[in-house]
């Protein structure tokens, strides 16, 4: 599940819960669903590592791999 989708669904879940129009049992299901979505989104956000590389090219100008890149 993509971050966007998870985030959008979490928002819907929270909105539904907030309105308080769903029956109690369904609320608990939604609550648990929200829990999972939140964990999923958090995992995506935790993965925030910077890695910068540069394409290395073959003779025909195609990408063959990457090497670390230093902007300075």
């Amino acid at each position: 599940m993509s971050f966007e989708d998870a985030m959008a669904e979490l928002e819907r879940v929270v909105d539904q819960l907030d309105r308080g129009e769903v029956p109690l049992e369904q609320s608990i299901t939604l609550y648990e669903r929200g829990q999972k979505l939140k964990a999923h989104c958090e995992a995506k956000l935790r993965d925030a590592e910077e890695r910068v590389s540069k394409i290395t090219m073959g003779p025909a100008g195609e990408a063959t791999g990457t090497t670390p890149f230093d902007a300075e």
Binding site: M7, L10, V13, D18, G20, S27, Y31, G34, C41
Partner: peptide
């Protein structure tokens, strides 16, 4: 910002259930 949004969603989620209960 995303973390904050996520946190606010979670807060709302918990508050909503607590309110309902």
């Amino acid at each position: 910002d995303l973390l904050a949004t996520l946190a606010s969603f979670d807060e709302r989620r918990q508050a909503a259930l607590a309110r309902l209960l």
